[in-house]
Amino acid sequence: MARQSYQDQLQEMQEDVLYMSEVVTDRLRMALEAMEQKDDETATQVIEGDDEVNDLYLDLEQTCIDLLALQQPVAGDLRLIASSFKIITDLERIADLAVNLGEYTLDAEQDMFPEVDINVIGDRTVEMVEDAMAAYESEDTERCWELADRDDELDALCQTASESVVRDLIETEVDDDTTEGEIEGLMQDVSRMLLTIRDLERVGDHAVNIAARTLYMVEKDDSLIY
């Protein structure tokens, strides 16, 4: 009976990790939608909702600690708990990046860089996080390797977008009639867009981290951990 209870605790922990991932990906989608629609209300909801994610993280952290301390797991169970602990850390950081996007939306004053499609980059990062968590749920190691390859594609996409922003800045004409306020506003817009691209790239990195921990959990293979 005690052993069954322990296995129930492990299953409940995994279900809670998956629930946290659903909350986080939902917040990320909301942040991207707010940025696209310039929706300050939704952006504010993302920012204010970060406390809920932090509470989920702390509860799961305690669950992992209790399982390690009280059950003294070994082998596969130990890797499951340790990997889950690492994964919730990545999820909490993804939520923080979603908050960043919400703050960028509130700070933005005008629509710039139409040639940079943030939604395309954003959609790819959301898909990567969802696929990483699906791999965790189903112990799909093949999908873990695929995510690492997709991250290279995301990095290239982000680099192209960043270069486009910088090129636009270089080509922007500034004359004697341009005020210091206009120049400062331009630089803030450029900085905000570059930070947006960087943060989405980091979301992809966290998705790969989740895949790496899943691969280690299932096969004790640390090849993707870096």
Rank of each mutant, 00 (worst) to 15 (best):
D175L: 05
S138R: 11
D16K: 15
M20R: 14
E22C: 09
A212Y: 03
L154F: 01
T141E: 02
D55Q: 14
Q45W: 03
L106Y: 12
A108E: 09
R150I: 04
D151W: 01
I210R: 02
I87F: 11
S162M: 09
L70M: 06
K86A: 10
G49R: 11
D77Q: 10
I65N: 05
E61G: 08
Q62A: 08
A69R: 02
M30W: 08
T89A: 15
A43P: 13
T44Q: 15
A31I: 06
M112G: 05
P114N: 12
D50K: 05
R124H: 03
S138K: 12
S83D: 06
D59R: 15
A212I: 07
R29M: 07
E127C: 03
V74T: 15
D221T: 01
E15Q: 14
D155I: 07
D205M: 00
L97M: 14
E130F: 02
E12V: 07
Q14I: 07
Y136W: 11
D140Q: 00
A34G: 10
M20H: 10
C144G: 09
D117Q: 04
L195G: 11
Q11W: 03
I81D: 13
V23L: 15
D177R: 10
D66F: 01
A31F: 10
E33W: 03
E12M: 09
L18H: 12
V23E: 14
T89G: 15
D168I: 06
E153A: 15
D221L: 01
D117N: 09
M35H: 15
E127T: 09
A156P: 06
G181K: 14
T25F: 02
L32M: 14
L224K: 02
D175E: 04
L97N: 09
M1P: 10
A108M: 15
Y216C: 05
D55H: 13
V218Y: 01
D117C: 04
I65V: 12
D175F: 03
E33R: 08
T105P: 13
E173M: 08
R3I: 12
L147R: 00
I88C: 13
S83I: 09
